[in-house]
Design a protein around this nucleic acid. Structure first.
Length: 518
RNA sequence: GGCUCCGUAGCCAAGUGGCUAAGGCAGUGGAUUGCAAAUCCACCAUCCCCGGUUCGAAUCCGGGCGGAGCCUCCA
């Protein structure tokens, strides 16, 4: 099955064909760095990181660019409020963003261009647009003339007339048409500015993406991604100015991810709350901050205090990328619970094979993966290939990570079943059976790598007293084992119950007793 | 008001014309266990409502009800 991708431009799934065979260029709209990330900011990066992983696995050479918008009215506003500079705010928030990407395992982005480092590229495009008659200067600003662009509105499927019908027209605006948008904004005294043929000013919102995509990826790119909320006006305008400038198609596939929403509340995470934030009385703001913990509108770093990054990543990928995701603390807890079984399987594997699941290096490409050696256990091997195939079929169908996640659970069940059936945990298992299990675990590693999960061992609940706790537990388990040997179940059950109250669970295995927190 | 999108079990969710409608969480029964835990097996939905197209629809079309996003420089 060939890879199919849903294209917002055509509103259908299309066979995936790149501009240059074997190569993919991807551009994702990144953050405006004026406030620390909330969970909504992680949705796009996690999804498109996964897209890149899958494309690379499928054999493409992929270049992935995410921009940083470090010049913007909101950053200026934040800087004024904090009595500092736009650059200082931008730098601080950008670092917060990078920290969050790192912890989420988003490490496939090749370039993070900053808007302020590409001003000349923007001026070049604006110059060309003015020359070609697509744009006009007006009192230090430069506007794009939407009426000059025949197919303006093709991405969001709206006509200029329709848009104007529903919008209030600002009376003091001297733009030729209210739909026209700023490519360049003349600056007021004291504001950050750059020199330009039209006087000092700063770029409009959309032009930076056109300039940076062109510079780093070329005039025609393969995939342009972003949140659904950016489709209009941002992407529509970006597309209009890029194509008017180059005369070539700007992006082959427009991919829009659904937005994170607060459970039980109207609106997307970080949307309405922030918009009127400044208008709220201080007391109401405090109240809002309290609520935000449960709605996901709080900072991402705060969220990570109560949830593992892997849980968040899994949670985001369990739903199809085009659907809205309902955020709630309960949902995340449920996800964490569903992952425990995987981590128990990894430990079980380690006991059986003596090596860590996380040390397994699986096949890096699809072609490589299909050349697996024979296991001498045809039925098991066939089941593994069939599961892999189901996983890849799901991914080939517009990156259906939700379906793929389901296969991962099936694979877990198969591996657990194999362990039980082959009695790998008791006595001395057959080496070929252990080798087969390793082959199965390798498939699990291969597929989970594509989603960017289970890449490293979970951070231990570690504390300095770990050695002491381990020693004490060994002692307690020894005492309990003696009691059990003597059929003194009153004592052994008391120990187990009391430990349970301390959030320690015991597992009596045939060989020995295991313990774990939680 | 205009433009998009969505409505699948108690909850989350995949599936968009045809085998017994994935999977997770919760629940029930069984195997296993001294009892548990863990694991495995089994059970648990005719797909918001009405009408239409079709040999056949959760899946296509029309209408209704309900929800969401955008039209406001928000990922």
């Amino acid at each position: 099955m060939p890879l199919r991708v849903y294209n917002t431009l055509t509103r259908q799934k299309e066979d995936f064909q790149t501009v240059t065979p074997g190569r993919v260029t991807m551009y994702l709209c990144g953050p405006t760095v004026y406030k620390p990330s909330h969970i909504g900011h992680m949705v796009g990066p996690v999804i498109f990181d996964t897209v890149k992983r899958y494309l690379s696995y499928s054999g493409y050479g992929v270049t992935f660019v995410v921009n940083i918008t470090d010049v913007d009215d909101k950053i200026i506003g934040e800087a004024t409020k904090r009595n500092t500079t736009m650059a200082a705010v931008a730098k601080e928030i950008e670092q917060d963003y990078f920290d969050n990407l790192k912890v989420m395992g988003v490490d496939s982005i090749d370039h993070f261009p900053r808007a302020t480092e590409h001003i000349q590229g923007m001026l070049d495009i604006i110059g060309t647009l003015v020359e070609k008659g697509y744009a006009y200067p007006l009192n230090g600003d430069v506007y794009f003339d939407c009426t000059k662009d025949d197919d303006y509105g093709k991405l969001s499927r709206r006509s200029i007339e329709e848009m104007l019908a529903g919008t209030r027209v600002e009376a003091n605006d001297r733009k030729r048409s209210p739909a026209d948008f700023a490519l360049w904004k003349g600056s007021k005294p004291g504001e950050p500015c750059w020199e330009s043929p039209w006087g000092p000013g700063r770029p409009g919102w959309h032009i930076e993406c056109s300039a940076m995509a062109k510079k780093l990826l070329g005039e025609s790119i393969d995939i342009h991604g972003g949140g659904l909320d950016l489709m209009f006006p941002h992407h529509e305008n970006e597309l209009a100015q890029s194509e008017s400038c180059s005369g070539k198609p700007f992006a082959r596939y427009w991919m829009h991810n659904g937005l994170m929403q607060s459970s039980g509340q109207a609106g997307k995470v970080g949307g309405q709350h922030d918009r009127h934030g400044d208008l709220l009385a201080e007391k109401q703001q405090q109240e809002a901050a309290k609520i935000s913990k449960s709605t996901g509108a709080g900072s991402f770093k705060d969220l990570l205090k109560s949830h593992a990054p892997e849980t968040v990543r899994f949670f985001l990928l369990a739903t199809h990328y085009r659907s809205p995701i309902d955020f709630s603390d309960e949902r995340l807890q449920e996800t964490a619970k569903s992952l425990e079984g995987f981590h128990r399987l990894f430990k079980t594997y380690e006991r059986i094979a003596g090596t860590s699941f996380f040390a397994i290096t699986p096949a890096a490409t699809r072609t490589e993966a299909q050349e697996s050696p024979s296991l001498g256990l045809p039925a098991f091997q066939e089941e593994l290939s069939s599961l892999r195939q189901r996983f890849l079929d799901a991914m080939d169908d517009d990156f259906n990570t939700g379906g793929a996640v389901g296969v991962l659970f099936d694979l877990r069940k198969t591996l657990n079943g194999f362990i039980a059936e082959q009695k790998l945990e008791t006595g001395s298992p057959k080496p070929e059976a252990v080798a087969a299990l390793t082959a199965g675990m390798t498939v699990l590693k291969e597929l989970s790598n594509l989603l960017g999960v289970f890449r490293v061992a979970p951070a231990k609940a570690a504390a300095a007293d770990d050695g002491l706790v381990n020693g004490l537990m060994e002692l307690v388990i020894q005492i309990r084992a003696d009691a059990r040997k003597n059929k003194n179940f009153a004592v052994s059950d008391l120990i187990r119950d009391q430990l349970k109250a301390l959030k320690i669970t015991l597992e009596d295995r045939p060989e020995k007793t295991l313990w774990r927190r939680g």
